[in-house]
Design a protein around this nucleic acid. Structure first.
Lengths: 234, 234
DNA sequence: CGCGGCATTGACTCATTTCAAAGGTGGTGG
DNA sequence: CCACCACCTTTGAAATGAGTCAATGCCGCG
């Protein structure tokens, strides 16, 4: 079912943004390079599943993944959007409280056996610190998401989402590439697909953004995106 | 401004629930007992502030605290409700990205200088592991909150909130004591105060809960609380 | 070519926000 | 002891934003 593929001992260099991030400070991924098992995933492939033993930690190397929970009523909530460089698989209990799936074909994920990493961290404080850092990064992402989901209007939610993607994907100035479908955006923002679509066309009609195809957005009026209702008209 | 008071070398035994929690497994608070500086806070007192240097970590010993962010438009979002045993102050950058305030008078918080704790963790892997554990606990709380805030109807949000409080406060069967005001609940759930109030009276009229005063709730129909419409146990 | 998944648009309903006001509650000081 | 105050809580009425249902358009792919 799950296709694990060893891609390389040392993973092929991931796209620009990641390289930049990891140049800043020695990252956990370098430290754990030796024990990484690379996995190439197809669209929708489950990487780790809710209620399964949480015996691995992971890191997105390329592509995108979604961490999600399915509610009792069948609705899905995306709890975290995982881009290259993001670690995941952390659980407070001994089972995962979520499911992680690859979003795009060819998403590459590094697998790390939790036990071995913890032993390594026990022996090397630097790794323990890096581990804390990636956990804090995850905390930061979740807080950002709560702030987005907690906004009132859908326009504000979608606006903040675009801004967040703009920052995290660090593309060339002004043009943001959305790594996910409208459905994923909807489940991430906890609104309906239709509302996402309407908000986007609305923002475009107001001249706040411009759409190129369905996945490329040019930010025209940054302030209006952040504020939502306070559309600076001029 | 900030009143720091050394309460005791070894803090007075906190109320029941905490003692129980910490009996389960050796907690971080014991390990750090020696370097804790206790702080007794009055209602609304700021414990740590956004954009200040993140040079301390904290643990709620007694009482309740809120971790919140004030948006550009002045609205406040409570990002985490901190009960006895909860650690906070973790930041991915070198500044806090939030403000933490005591909610009730006499809230007691343990202060730990971050540098010293990290040095201790470098030397003692057990502490490093406990540190990871409390970080994962925080992750778990945030995920739970996203699931709550992401719900559609206010009834579901309030219902889940009651259930969550029921679990985290571990009071005697069926009766939940709300540690916060309606305003705090509103800012935690990202709805208006009026909606919280209405939802509660609504739930009572349907016989799902019973209110005793404004802060004590008896859960009558657990399933109805969870589902909002369809009762399904987790 | 036609299928299936994704995206957009419209119409309608209803829950939630907003604005407004009145009831409670606890604390403080006269 | 009482009065007053600030704050919290509840309830009402009106406006609107978002969900839902439904239909169509779009596009890549077999």
């Amino acid at each position: 079912m799950r296709t694990k593929t060893v891609v390389a001992e040392r993973a092929p260099c991931p796209p620009g943004s990641v390289a930049i991030i990891e140049a800043d400070q020695p990252g956990l991924r370098q430290s754990l390079g030796a024990m990484a098992v690379m996995m190439s995933c197809h669209r929708g492939q489950e990487i780790c599943g809710q209620n399964r033993r949480a015996d691995h930690w992971y890191c997105v190397v390329a592509g995108v993944a979604r961490r999600c929970v399915v509610r009792a009523d069948g609705r899905r909530q995306i709890v975290d959007l995982l881009l290259p460089g993001d670690f995941f698989g952390f659980s407070a209990t001994d089972e995962y409280g979520f499911t992680v799936e690859a979003i795009s074909d060819g998403t590459i994920v590094a697998n790390y056996p939790r036990q071995r990493v913890e032993l390594l961290a026990d022996a090397d404080p630097r790794i323990a610190r890096q581990l804390r850092q990636v956990a804090f990064d995850a905390l930061s992402r979740l807080q950002a998401q709560i702030l987005i989901v907690g906004r009132i209007t859908a326009l504000e939610k979608v606006g903040s989402f675009i801004l967040e993607m703009g920052e995290r994907m660090s593309g060339p100035a002004g043009v943001v590439m959305l790594p996910v479908s409208r459905y994923d955006i909807a489940d991430y923002l906890a609104v309906s697909v239709e509302t996402v679509s309407r908000s986007l066309t609305d923002l475009q009609q107001r001249g706040v953004i411009r759409l190129f195809g369905t996945r490329h957005i040019q930010i025209v009026n940054r302030a209006a995106l952040a504020g939502g209702r306070a559309g600076a008209p001029h």
